[in-house]
């Protein structure tokens, strides 16, 4: 199998039936079990591109892929025999604003399994424990699994959202600015978690923090106005970018 888990080929995307393109022909390959960061000034289409990867944009009526293709595990995800719902079980997502359901911690983590029809309590218990351990939350919440998730701190809620995502055992985890609503300590914990998750999952993370990208990611893609300007190893991007544009952005001269 190809070690390039996700392959974008000249992808174009529009929010308004193709009148204007928000993503303008992006080609990049994302390798397996690595962390890939998307950086760029806000409004350049990072979130949009990320949401293309699990077909979240299907929920918007007027959204449309204008050209190109996305292949995940070698399969074109827009092929007519692909079910977006099945795709999302393999490509999970963590959102910018942590959004646990107003249910118990346990029910939040079990959600993805319950909708797959799993009712067996032992299976659920086991999965909840594994996922919470996997997201380094178990020790903090193991005594209050039945209490509301909304009683947790912001950082804990975001890690709960990550636990909820890994409970369905996806191949890929997409994270859209997962730390932008968190304080520095909570951010450090989530970053630590990302580094651990990297062993098992392929992670694509959008971030507006250059330091975060350099800390957690293996590869970094820099976008500007819907176009991919540069994509390389994170070290290369930050120390020796080939594009003037990238260098300007990274050194904080614009954006």
């Amino acid at each position: 199998m190809n070690s390039q888990l996700i392959q974008l080929n000249d992808l174009g995307f529009s929010y308004d039936q193709g009148k204007t393109e928000t993503i303008k022909g992006v080609s990049l390959d994302i390798p397996e079990k690595q962390v890939t960061a998307f950086i760029g000034p806000s409004g350049c289409g990072k979130s949009t591109l990320l949401r293309c990867l699990n077909r979240m944009n299907d929920l918007i009526d007027t959204a449309k892929i204008t050209r190109g293709s996305i292949k995940i595990l070698g399969q074109d995800i827009h092929a007519s025999d692909v079910d977006a719902i099945e795709l999302r079980k393999h490509v999970g997502m963590v959102f910018q604003k942590y959004n646990p359901f107003p249910k118990s911690i346990y029910e939040n983590v079990a959600y993805g399994l319950r909708i797959q029809g799993i009712k067996n309590k032992d299976v659920l218990d086991e999965a909840v424990e594994r996922s919470l351990k996997g997201s380094a939350l178990w020790d903090e919440v193991k005594d209050r699994l039945k209490t509301s998730a909304l009683g947790l701190s912001g950082g804990q809620q975001q890690r709960l959202c990550i636990a909820r995502t890994i409970a369905v055992q996806p191949k890929v985890i997409l994270m859209d600015e997962p730390c932008s609503a968190l304080d520095p300590i909570a951010t450090a914990k989530v970053e630590e978690l990302i580094t651990e998750l990297r062993e098992q999952y392929t992670i694509v993370i959008v971030t507006h923090s250059m330091q975060q990208a350099s800390r957690v990611s293996d590869r970094t893609a820099f976008f500007y106005l819907g176009e991919l300007i540069e994509y390389d190893k994170t070290n290369t991007i930050f120390q020796n970018p080939s594009q003037k544009h990238t260098e300007d952005y990274i050194s904080g001269r614009f954006g």
Binding site: K89, G92, M93, Y111, I115
Partner: peptide
């Protein structure tokens, strides 16, 4: 909207 998005992202119909 976050509840819906989170649910869809977990593979719910």
């Amino acid at each position: 909207k976050g509840f819906r998005e989170a649910s869809f992202a977990l593979g719910a119909t």
